[in-house]
Simulated scan of single mutants.
Amino acid sequence: MIESVHPSSPETRGAPVRGVIFDLDGTLADTLHDIMHALNTALRSVSRRPADADQVRAWVGDGLPTLCRKAAPDADEGTLAALVEAARTAYAAHPYDRARLYAGIREALTALAERHVPLAVLSNKPHDLTIRTIDGLGIGDLFHPVRGCVSEADRKPAPGPALAIAQGWGLTAASIVLVGDSATDIATARAAGMRCVAVKWGFRDAAELRAAKPDYLISEPAELIRVLTEWPVDA
C-alpha cells in the first residue's frame, strides 16, 4: 500500500523525478546478520555479551561507531575504540556473506534503469564496504555513484554527500528522491531539499517512519516504480 504521509511543498510536489538515491542497509538489502556477526565478534573480543537480532536492528543506520556505542554505552574511550576497530575488521572480512536483496528490488532497479533514471547509493556504512557489498550483491552496474561514509562530517543526516551526488548528475536537489528505511534517511532528504520515500520492509517500523514525515511510505518494491514515475501519486 502506498501511503501519502507528508507531501513536499507545492513547488516540488508536481515536479518529475529525475534521479533516485538509495540507502543500502534495510532498503536495498537485508544485511542485518552480517552486521550482527561483525558486532558480536567485536563484543566478544572485549569480553562483552553479544547482542541479539532485535537489538542490532534497532541500533543500525548511523554507522559503525554509533552502533558500537549503543552496544556498549558504558565503555570507556579506549574500550570503545578497540570495539570499533574489531567490528570494522570483522565486517571487512565478511561484508555480505549473509546479505540478500529484498524480493522485488532487482526488478524495481532494472525498471528504473530502463527508464534512464540515474541511480545512486548513499550509505553510512564505510565507503569501501559499501562498494564491496553492492558489487557482491550483483547490482553495482546499476548505480553511479556508490558512496559510503568517508568521514564523520559526511555521515547522514548531513546533506553534503546527497547534494554532491545531485551536483555530479547536474540535477537540482528538488528533482531527486531519496529512498530509505529510517528517520536518518528522511532527515537527510529534508536537509538536502530532496523528496523522500520510506520503505516498510527494512529495519524500522511504520510508526517510527510516519513520525519522521516522509513524502510517501510504501510496503513493497513494486510500489516504488509507480511512486517515482507518476509522482505525485493519489495514494
Rank of each mutant, 00 (worst) to 15 (best):
residue 173 A to H: 02
residue 195 R to V: 01
residue 121 V to S: 08
residue 16 P to K: 12
residue 9 S to W: 01
residue 42 A to D: 10
residue 200 K to V: 00
residue 28 L to F: 04
residue 125 K to W: 02
residue 148 G to M: 07
residue 54 D to P: 00
residue 203 F to K: 14
residue 16 P to V: 09
residue 71 A to K: 13
residue 232 P to K: 11
residue 93 A to Y: 00
residue 142 L to I: 07
residue 72 A to L: 13
residue 228 L to R: 14
residue 222 A to R: 15
residue 176 I to P: 09
residue 156 K to G: 02
residue 197 V to Q: 08
residue 203 F to E: 12
residue 158 A to M: 13
residue 48 R to T: 03
residue 56 V to K: 11
residue 22 F to Q: 11
residue 188 T to W: 03
residue 95 P to F: 05
residue 104 G to E: 10
residue 106 R to M: 03
residue 153 A to P: 02
residue 115 R to E: 12
residue 13 R to L: 14
residue 157 P to C: 07
residue 127 H to R: 08
residue 189 A to E: 13
residue 156 K to H: 06
residue 74 D to K: 13
residue 141 D to A: 14
residue 132 R to K: 15
residue 63 G to S: 06
residue 14 G to S: 12
residue 150 V to L: 14
residue 32 L to T: 07
residue 67 L to H: 09
residue 128 D to F: 00
residue 72 A to K: 04
residue 152 E to R: 14
residue 220 E to R: 14
residue 13 R to Y: 02
residue 117 V to E: 06
residue 40 N to I: 04
residue 91 Y to L: 14
residue 189 A to K: 11
residue 94 H to G: 02
residue 230 E to A: 14
residue 91 Y to N: 09
residue 213 K to V: 03
residue 159 P to A: 13
residue 73 P to I: 05
residue 72 A to G: 04
residue 14 G to H: 11
residue 85 E to G: 01
residue 120 A to W: 06
residue 33 H to F: 12
residue 122 L to H: 10
residue 161 P to R: 12
residue 52 D to M: 05
residue 74 D to M: 10
residue 52 D to Q: 08
residue 68 C to L: 09
residue 77 E to G: 09
residue 98 R to M: 11
residue 234 D to A: 14
residue 25 D to T: 00
residue 85 E to V: 00
residue 21 I to L: 13
residue 101 L to G: 08
residue 216 Y to M: 08
residue 109 L to S: 06
residue 195 R to C: 03
residue 126 P to R: 10
residue 205 D to K: 07
residue 39 L to R: 14
residue 149 C to Y: 01
residue 4 S to M: 11
residue 59 W to E: 05
residue 131 I to M: 09
residue 23 D to I: 04
residue 130 T to W: 02
